[in-house]
Design a protein around this nucleic acid. Sequence first.
DNA 1: CGGTATATTGAAGTCGGTCAAACCCGGTGG
DNA 2: CCACCGGGTTTGACCGACTTCAATATACCG
Lengths: 255, 255
Amino acid sequence: MTTSISVQEGTDACNTIGCDNCAVGDLCARYSDNQNKEHEAVLQHYHPLNDSGSHIFWEGDKFDLLYAVKSGCIKTYTLDEDGNERIRGFYLPGDLVALDALYSDEYTSSACAVVPTQVCGIPYSQLTRVVASKPELQQRLLKMMSKDLSTALALAGDYSAEQRMAAFLLHLYEREQQRHIGKNGEIELLMPRRDIASFLRLAPETASRVLSRFQQQGMIRSRQRCLQLNDPQALWALAQPLGITSTPCENRRAA
Amino acid sequence: MTTSISVQEGTDACNTIGCDNCAVGDLCARYSDNQNKEHEAVLQHYHPLNDSGSHIFWEGDKFDLLYAVKSGCIKTYTLDEDGNERIRGFYLPGDLVALDALYSDEYTSSACAVVPTQVCGIPYSQLTRVVASKPELQQRLLKMMSKDLSTALALAGDYSAEQRMAAFLLHLYEREQQRHIGKNGEIELLMPRRDIASFLRLAPETASRVLSRFQQQGMIRSRQRCLQLNDPQALWALAQPLGITSTPCENRRAA
DNA sequence: CGGTATATTGAAGTCGGTCAAACCCGGTGG
DNA sequence: CCACCGGGTTTGACCGACTTCAATATACCG
């Protein structure tokens, strides 16, 4: 859901975003500049969530901290009248969680770990002060929010189950590529089908069927949580109308 | 789609947001502080769009200006393969258009007037400089984006045609109330049914049927573009799961 | 007045949802 | 080592919400 992640040359297979190459790196204290003491207070809480399902906040809690994902995966959700989760978003290493809450005084959704996950809590009040004094950081924060907004608007559109699923898979793929993992088209689905389905406003059965169809057509190979993208081009052709996946390889502006 | 609009006491029936009480007022030069000369350059273009359909930018254009809506209504959209518009959003007086573009170097959608409309172009590069020096402005901009993000995430969820339509109508109603127009439950649908439908990912026929159903149940009274909300409570009960409409009158947190 | 665009209403079709059963797979324990 | 779970996942049959197609009605405008 976020902007490109700068990773040092030669770094490979990083499931954790260290402070040195965290996308939100210079939004927090450590990386930016150590001469400015005020910044050091910003990164307050390094917070390991060892169990999937561990919550970092609940809908309605007083909003005070943003969370930077260092490793693993966070999902946000609200509950419907029957107690079912409506997944609002997934957040991967480098993403900021709760950007949709800072207009309010409380979190607008609950957030919990999908797999064992590490997050850093960033006090919003302090962040704004730091950001005000560092234009590059302000710029980065605005861009992250803008990208999230753009993605959300696209996902809110009237696209078919296939289109949304293709966009989702490609998005994961791109994120993993940026972190130099899953080189040969392999991606790891950290979240259960049920959550993917909910996020894409599908029934779990439909999500499963769509993936089966993709597999029959040879576009992917799905073995449980591990997924092989055999034909990213074909997926991209499906997802292209959403406009959230960058154009792959050769064909720029094909359509 | 935006934060509350501060309007002076005693002001009534304002279809235009003047510079004095524009929600984005102090994001632009005039209102903020005249002693700071740099700010004066920010508001470059006052831009009247006399005809509905007049465009302020097109998808793919180089991104340089945000637009503050002063009066009227702007819609943003992308085109599908058949040339049909997919409405991404409507922007009313006080809103900022193109916040979803500032992560990119080009606009991610096209924007045009729904009715005769006045907008102000705000050079983004200059805005960031001004915002950096004025924490209140930074705060306001972040909150606007956050609110937009929150709304978009909610609208992306799996809700019924009725629920989305109810949320949409209530949203319009609240916006008009904030501007002290449409006191007795009347709202003006500036945009054609087709656009409302597209925005809510419905067929125009479905949108029409939903409104008919609302009318049969006595919740609204629909005469062409003018709409009377007879039972906002009932609408709110429908829209409540989306979480984007503030709770009306007495019943806080009813469910 | 037509004439065109928009809005509504009706009938038939489709995509995705629901319900139910089967499957798969890791884990446990005999 | 294998039987037996129990969850997540897949598959099939049916159902329903929304769409599509078609026709009619209504508003807008010269």
